[in-house]
């Protein structure tokens, strides 16, 4: 059992994109705030803080989830993947490349969460239909693109890997 009184700060250690990070969080500190303002990993964005828009989606222990609906103290010891970790060795991942090719982003604010979702989605469903892609994307809001480029990009990558 672990108990963290309100107002006290608790040490949280996580592995983010393969690298160990440590910081302090209160019981109520949202993971999205911890990543951004404690670990200074600003690639994850905050769009609504009530779990609807999907901008803050990160990968925790293999699954794409909302980081605004998780407390930092819950992820002590977890493996976290954020947008900063998608380009391995400095070159864009195939999905990132496809997003660029298909103009799947404009302001790019929602993009980090969508890339995290789509990456895990393709791991579980390597050859999705367009309807399945759109269903996965329904957990995200983008106000710039109309989603069309994203759908094309994800299908393009899926087609390439299947």
């Amino acid at each position: 059992m672990l108990r963290i009184k309100p107002g006290t700060r608790h040490r949280v250690t996580v592995t983010v994109n393969g690298r160990r990070h440590g910081g302090f969080a209160e019981a109520r500190t949202l993971l999205s705030d911890f990543l951004r303002h404690e670990l200074k990993l600003f690639g994850t964005h905050v769009g609504c803080e009530h779990g609807v828009c999907g901008a803050c989606t990160v990968n925790i222990d293999g699954r794409a989830v909302r980081s605004c609906l998780r407390f930092a103290v819950q992820v002590d010891g977890a493996e976290i993947g954020t947008v900063e970790g998608l380009a391995e060795g400095g070159s864009l991942s195939p999905l990132q490349e496809a997003f660029r090719r298909h103009h799947a982003l404009q302001c790019g604010f929602c993009t980090a969460g969508i890339l995290i979702s789509a990456t895990q989605f393709l791991e579980t469903n390597p050859d999705p239909t367009e309807d399945e892609v759109r269903d996965m994307l329904s957990g995200h809001i983008c106000r710039c693109t109309g989603y069309e480029g994203m759908v094309r990009a994800i299908l393009d990558v899926a087609g390439g890997s299947s």
Binding site: V46, T82, A87
Partner: peptide, 17 residues
């Protein structure tokens, strides 16, 4: 293709917050 994209796709673009 857009000059803006790489920074945005890799999480290195900077916004006000």
């Amino acid at each position: 293709p857009r000059k803006e994209d790489e920074a945005l796709l890799t999480g290195h673009a900077r916004f006000i917050d």
